[in-house]
Design a protein around this nucleic acid. Structure first.
Lengths: 150, 150
DNA sequence: GCTTAATAGGAGTATATACACATAAAAGGA
DNA sequence: TCCTTTTATGTGTATATACTCCTATTAAGC
């Protein structure tokens, strides 16, 4: 008999990697958003500011590769930070390209945000255990690889 | 000296649980969206249909608890499936409540989608190893607990 | 040099997500 | 019964995300 003749056991979907990853992503994103709320930024925005700080001056597409984020998503996310004066986007030599930089205000904000991030990371590390957290991060990376080579 | 006098080492943020979880979430969501694209639904929508199938008839807030999703997010996500005739939302005895159900079309679609999900899950399980995947899911759950009790 | 490819980016649209605020109905207490 | 509180839900708004289609510019072949 073929699988189309059997009734699916949908309870198996409780172990779906996508479902559980999205669930955790929602919880963790809310956690980090709350951490950074006193500074008026979200977790995503902190990560983006850090990425620019570490790579600037950087082209839009290079930054998207670095953060493994869709180029158009990055554009929309950066727009908010540009409007707040935390990032700048300027034309490069190649007239097609855009250079992304972090402003003095952006760096100043990052210096306030970093201790908050450290505390948050410390809570997670303490709660899970440092070794388990390290394994978890490696598993996340492996999962990304598997999903992109299937 | 206090931490405010030292220059932050932003490279440490490459181990940020939030950053890496969001990154993996983007990759995995794209993977599942591609899996279900032939059927015209997204990974999130498959998960939601399964959740309703497993719990129907169910109240909106109960379903939100089950999926650990914000109630208003659920409302918006369901709206799309209701418009496609895959779910129904009807008034309950208590005039405040809404009963969520899956339609015959919804069940029919699920039966086509389930084998696709099985194949996707098998790919991930084979790529990571079943045992590592099981540990990973447990870690995700632990992370959610830590983030919600901090 | 001219034509064609590849590259960098933007805009339109759609879904996923959740916070703040508002409303209606049920439950509980005096 | 009436007042207060709790509960269930909807709406407005904002961010995060990515796909499709489009334009401008550069690089590559001939």
């Amino acid at each position: 008999m073929t699988s189309t003749l059997t009734t699916p056991d949908y309870r198996a979907c409780m172990t779906c990697a996508g479902f559980n990853l999205r669930k955790a992503n929602r919880a963790i994103s809310q956690f980090y958003d709350e951490v950074f709320r006193p500074l008026g930024i979200r977790g995503t925005q902190y990560s983006l500011l850090v990425a620019v700080k570490l790579t600037a001056p950087v082209l839009l597409t290079q930054l998207a590769d670095y953060a493994q984020m869709d180029r158009t998503t990055l554009t929309r996310n950066m727009e908010l930070l540009v409007n707040q004066g935390l990032l700048t986007v300027s034309a490069g030599k190649d007239k097609r390209t855009r250079n992304v930089n972090i402003t003095a205000d952006g760096v100043e904000l990052l210096e306030l945000a970093y201790p908050l991030w450290q505390q948050a990371q410390a809570k997670i590390s303490a709660g899970m255990g440092a070794e388990r957290l390290a394994h978890f991060l490696a598993d996340l990376s492996a999962l990304v690889d598997v999903s992109q080579h299937s």
